[in-house]
Design a protein around this nucleic acid. Structure first.
Lengths: 303, 303
DNA sequence: TCAACTCAGAAGCAGCGCTTATCAATCCGC
DNA sequence: GCGGATTGATAAGCGCTGCTTCTGAGTTGA
């Protein structure tokens, strides 16, 4: 027979007060009820916890043992309930996110930092995944949410755009396009030179966007497949007169010999999206979604 | 509102089984009762712990938090009750004992060792006290029990003899008494030489015993007050032809130049006694008393 | 489509745990 | 030494909690 925590609380109050009447008042119950509780506790333990006469209440050795250990046990129990409440509100727990390298620069760190500041007791773990694998990882529950550039729409997955940026070309500083027009360019001009693209398998939706962009404009540039995406050295752009179509984010911190020119005609955009499970979200994930949207708006990522 | 441990136990069972019906069976209650418990728990926490459909029960993040932390909290609570039960049976806790130096040699270590073997989870702390202070220390609760040679009987204190030994004289090996009769002596012979005694204040009852011993025999030896008692060097016995009256225990491990001779006429004894609080004893103290008596009998200390 | 399974809801009931009233024992001031 | 005050135990009564059984509704799988 193992007594309830309520009996422990009552006993600790009596032990502290050394007085049933005052303890009962503190517990907001009548004194006989408290007497009965302590009696019940002693019966269940088979051990006397208090020596009591009508004038004096004092602890037995067993009572002292309970008095010493009880508070920690009650605190442990309380911690369980606190953890449940905080976790239920999304203030405590773990958040695993999977992001594509293409969404990494600038965007993921900003969102993760904001989330860490907002919910310091939430452990956030982020891992890089290949874009086409992210949706499946979310569906399988291997990660709680994904962040990627133009992931494939999938059943059971909801996508939410958190960043929309102008698309432009990345090219060498001595490229003819730069010499011709150093501040911006047009798609028709770009199509005259080789365009480096990643393999279609690396991100089918994004690849198709690029192809479609030229197709709609009636252009057929030479597409050269290279693992260019987000190679920080961008060495493929050194030789020939190649270009690569990337978002404005990629213009940050370029080396001297590289330039990024926005494509002004036609204007075209690339998007970074959250990859969320459809339906109701766990509290932490929901908070992250809301926070990501708010952060995006505050940062002007969606203008 | 803070839920009871019973609700936690029920929840953990459901979480483990992922099934209300089986969990209810394990808890020996009907399934609707268990449903009500979990509902009550969730209401008290203000947090959903389980996603349940008619076919599938699965934990929410909050439920997982409870599942992870709950068992430790329950164990902590259980430990409190176990500690109470063990302490109540005298198998766990602390025992502080105060002993006089005169009772130390041989007797106290034997009893303490026996107690440590019998109750390994009881912490035994022993300190040396002056014999006349022991009873007061017991009454004040500074120690749980005392061990002394001939302590003063006091109100509220019960004495229990655990060792009774023949009294004899400690003297130099070249003392005339030894030369005259090397195996034993008589009180009348002893009285012809100076007798070293401790100050009366150091142990009044014992001092009076010695004085009374000579008085009853009609003898009046020269009593020389010295702090002789249990000085391991016993250097006071080197000079003159002094003797000291001590129990047989003191004959153990004497240096070559010292002898202990029993006093055969009149036979006289000295006693080591437990100093216990009158009335009902705490379990650990009671066990020590019983164990001390048993040990004494087994060792032939009371023959 | 139907049988099987599972969790929730309804109704009913027992007993636990609370209340108030009272008692017995002890303490303390006069 | 006596009487009032204080304190814990006991007694009686009662309401609500928490259990039971029965039933229903939703989902699954043959």
């Amino acid at each position: 027979m193992t007594p309830e925590a309520r009996l422990l609380r009552s006993f600790l109050t009596v032990a502290e007060e050394s007085n049933f009447t005052r303890a009962a008042a503190r517990l907001h119950i009548a004194q006989p009820a408290l007497s009965a509780q302590i009696r019940q506790l002693e019966t269940q333990l088979g051990v006397k916890l208090l020596h009591r006469t009508t004038r004096v209440v004092q602890l037995t050795a067993a009572g002292r043992a309970v008095q010493e250990r009880g508070p920690a046990a009650l605190a442990a129990l309380e911690d369980v309930w606190d953890a449940a409440r905080h976790t239920g509100r999304g203030e405590l727990g773990h958040l695993r996110l999977g992001y594509s390298a293409s969404a990494g620069y600038g965007t993921v760190p900003t969102l993760v930092d904001a989330a860490r500041r907002r919910h310091p007791d939430v452990q956030i773990a982020a891992q890089v995944l290949r874009t086409p694998d992210i949706a499946q990882a979310v569906l399988d529950g291997r990660v709680d949410l994904g962040i990627a550039r133009s992931p494939q729409p999938v059943d059971g997955i909801r996508l939410l755009t958190v960043r929309r940026e102008l698309r432009g070309v990345l090219l060498s500083a001595d490229h003819p396009l730069v010499r011709h027009s150093p501040a911006s360019t047009e798609l028709v001009a770009v199509a005259a030179f080789p365009v480096l693209v990643h393999a279609r398998e690396a991100n089918p939706a994004h690849y198709d966007q690029l192809v479609d962009l030229f197709h709609r404009a009636g252009l057929q540039p030479r597409l050269v497949e290279r693992p260019i995406a987000f190679d920080p050295t961008q060495h493929h752009l050194r030789d020939a007169h190649s270009t690569a179509l990337v978002g404005q984010t990629s213009a940050d911190g370029l080396p001297d010999w590289l330039r990024w020119l926005p494509i002004t005609a036609p204007q075209t955009h690339t998007e970074i999206q959250l990859v969320l499970p459809a339906g109701e979200l766990p509290p932490i994930t929901r908070h992250f979604e809301e926070l990501a949207l708010a952060t995006a708006q505050r940062a002007g990522w969606l203008d």
